[in-house]
Structure formats: C-alpha cells, structure tokens
Design a protein around this nucleic acid. Sequence first.
DNA 1: AGACTTATTGCGAACGGTTGTCAATAAGCC
DNA 2: GGCTTATTGACAACCGTTCGCAATAAGTCT
Lengths: 128, 128
Amino acid sequence: MKRNTWQREAVTTELNAINGFVSAQALFARMRDAGSTISLATVYRALTDLVGEKAADSLLSPEGENLYRACASDGHHHHLICRSCGATAEINAEPVESWAQQVAAAHGFTQAQHVVDVFGLCADCSLT
Amino acid sequence: MKRNTWQREAVTTELNAINGFVSAQALFARMRDAGSTISLATVYRALTDLVGEKAADSLLSPEGENLYRACASDGHHHHLICRSCGATAEINAEPVESWAQQVAAAHGFTQAQHVVDVFGLCADCSLT
DNA sequence: AGACTTATTGCGAACGGTTGTCAATAAGCC
DNA sequence: GGCTTATTGACAACCGTTCGCAATAAGTCT
C-alpha cells in the first residue's frame, strides 16, 4: 500500500516550483534551506518514485549527476536545456524519433532507445 | 614534456583491439587478465589523455559510467550502441545535426551542443 | 654510458553521488 | 485507540573516479 507522507508531497511541491532540471542534492539543499528536516535518502527515494510513476523526468548530466524535473506533458519527449540557468523547453523531436528507429533497424538493432538532448545557452543567458 | 611509457601504449593497444565502447574498469580487467601489471589509476589517466588528444571517444552510459572507444573517423559523429555486447556502429546523424540547430535557434538558444546516442540490441544479441 | 631532471607510475586514501540497512516512526485501516 | 506495515532518518557501504605523494623511469645533457 502506498502512503502519503508530507515528505513526498514536499518533494513534489519543491520540484514543481522549479522550472528546469535539478539534481537530487540541489533539491535537498533548497528544502533544507527552506527549513525542511527531510533527509537526503528520502529525497532520492521520492524522486525515484516520481520517475517510476512518470510524474517526473530524469536525465544524466554530462557530469554524471542525475537531474530531475517535474513532467508537464506526459509521454515521450526531449529537452532543450540551458547550460547556464537550467531552464528547459520541451521540444518536438518527431523527426528524430523516426530517424532513430530507421537507423537502428538499418543496422539490425532491436529495442532501440535513444538519448537526445540539446544543451545550449538560452536567450537570456546569451546576452552576457 | 610528454613521455612514452609502455603503460600508455598498452592502453592504446588494448583499446584499439576492442570493437566498441568499454568502461575504464573493464579495460583494466582485460589488461590484468592478460597479465599486465598496470594500475587502475594509470588506465584512467591514459584514457583521459587519449580523449584529450582526440585519439578516443568517450560517452556517459545510462548507468553513469564513462565509456571509451578508439576514435576511427575523426570529427563529429554519433553512435549506435549495443546494450548487451557493447558493439557500436557510427551513424550518419546529418538530419539530426540540422534539426538540433533549428530547434535551438527557434527557442533563442545559442551555442547549441547535443547528446545523441541510440542504444539497442544488435542483431546477434537480439537472437537470445 | 652516467648523471640529472621531472613526467609518470602505483598505491592507497579520499571523494561525490547514490543506494542499502535497520531500528524507530507514523499512515491508513480496524 | 490499537495494529500492521510502509516509510523515514541516520549512517554505513558502494561504485566509479580522482588525488596525494613517494618511488620509478623517460628523455636530455655531457
């Protein structure tokens, strides 16, 4: 039986309050700073659950950290991520979907998954 | 001044002998099994150097491990990687290149980079 | 060849992110 | 209010990777 705890809700809320991807550690730090007494392990567990329920996205940053984000539109989609401020835009990757399938099939690969993310500097951060 | 040691050569050789991406740990294990007395740290250092000299590719697997591969064709390219045996094929991602640029530009992003890799099961491994 | 300089090695300890252990706590059901 | 058991928190354990440092050896100079 799944139980509702204030900890899980706190994680969900905090994640929703953030526009963009955050690391588990960063999320934990924010909550602690805001006065929460939640533990780091619980943040990890909550995030893992959220991803499992498809209520959050996760991706692996180039530094090897797991980043999480509240998942607005559900289903399969990709991201455009600002390297500087972390802001994200969900992008229509339809062309890439079919391309990935084709390319995999052409080489005899099955069960193709793909990692497609575009990192850059958003309009605001580009002004610097 | 850069010096040539048998350790570096051994790493280069071993990497060239492998068709596909390997983790530093796996490479180290293979060398040890083959009788080498090289140390793990040295393998890491050698691999890092190789990547720096663009003599090897590296990418981050979904599990958060760094994978390395001798770099045949130089320049920008992407990979189709077998989740089971690690075999790879370099793929022509031309359509994706331009798509990434467009999508970034459309959102006002500059200095766009992209992470595009397709993981799947190769023909052989699909037979299981 | 022999001496010398200093890049490189190997070892083990340290690190950062993440997961596991386990007793204590508390959510949901009676 | 009790009872059951999912969940929490604190901390140890892990895993891949990097760092510190003394010992080793590559390239240079003579």
